[in-house]
Write a protein that binds this DNA or RNA. Structure first.
Length: 222
DNA sequence: TACCCGATTAACT
DNA sequence: GTTAATCGGGTAG
């Protein structure tokens, strides 16, 4: 639990786990709540902690960019469950991305963890991503973030609000509202008008914006 | 069962 | 700035 880690001592509530109730809200609100939160992951080699600095909200049937837009499937079923669980998916043949499930049981919604700053376990993080040219780059991007934390498909469905889980979500230190920036989601080709990406202004770990790919597929309007 | 393509990254011009 | 790598899930047939 608590320790002699300076990062923990400074923030009074830094060691507390976020509760399911706090996360059982609209993904857009949950996203802002997650900025500044700390995700910690255990492994036989040690523990890595990452302070979240960039997130994106994904909803359900009303969000064409969401994996849940076309209903429940074996892959996305965690997003339909209770808030506070980890949704990990595999993409582009070689990467994993992690989300925190929001909203309540039966209503899909989640927050994609896009980037963070490694605040503990830096050596293990570096060994997991040896190609990184700087510490700020270690978790700069959703797949890099899962990389430093060692998250894979096996972690899909883990309860982040349970202290006994191998992966947990701590409240961390609240980010002042004036430090939060907003914009369209990265790499999304639809619903580009909704500003559902949030990041901490000034962090070197925030990833660059990139427009979504080809939009040949027409998304039916509601 | 086949085909298409993605909530990406790294490498290259 | 562009593009290859790489494969599981989802949709079409």
């Amino acid at each position: 639990m608590g320790g002699a880690n300076p990062a923990e001592v400074t923030g009074g509530a830094a060691g507390e786990v976020l509760t399911r109730d706090e996360l059982a809200v609209d993904p857009v609100d949950a996203a802002k709540l997650l900025l500044g939160a700390v995700l910690e992951s255990d492994s036989p080699q040690g523990t890595v902690r990452v302070r979240i600095v960039e997130v994106e909200a994904y909803r359900g049937g009303d969000d064409p960019a969401s994996h849940c837009y076309r209903g429940k499937t074996p892959r996305n079923e965690v997003m339909f469950g209770p808030a506070g669980y980890l949704y990990v998916y595999f993409v582009y043949g070689m990467h994993f991305c992690a989300n925190v499930v929001a909203l309540t049981d039966g209503v899909p919604g989640a927050v994609l963890l896009r980037a963070g700053e490694v605040v503990d376990g830096i050596d293990l993080a570096r060994s997991r991503r040896p190609a990184s040219r700087s510490d700020a780059e270690l978790a700069k991007g959703p797949a890099r973030l899962t990389g430093v934390l060692g998250l894979t498909r096996d972690d899909n469905g883990v309860d982040l609000t349970d202290l006994a889980s191998p992966v947990r979500l701590l409240a961390g230190e609240r980010v002042p509202a004036e430090s939060v920036r907003v914009g369209p989601r990265v790499g999304v080709a639809v619903a580009m008008d909704v500003p559902w990406r949030f990041w901490v202004d000034g962090s070197r770990a925030v990833s660059a914006y990139r427009r979504g790919g080809k939009r040949t597929r027409v998304v039916p309007t509601l």
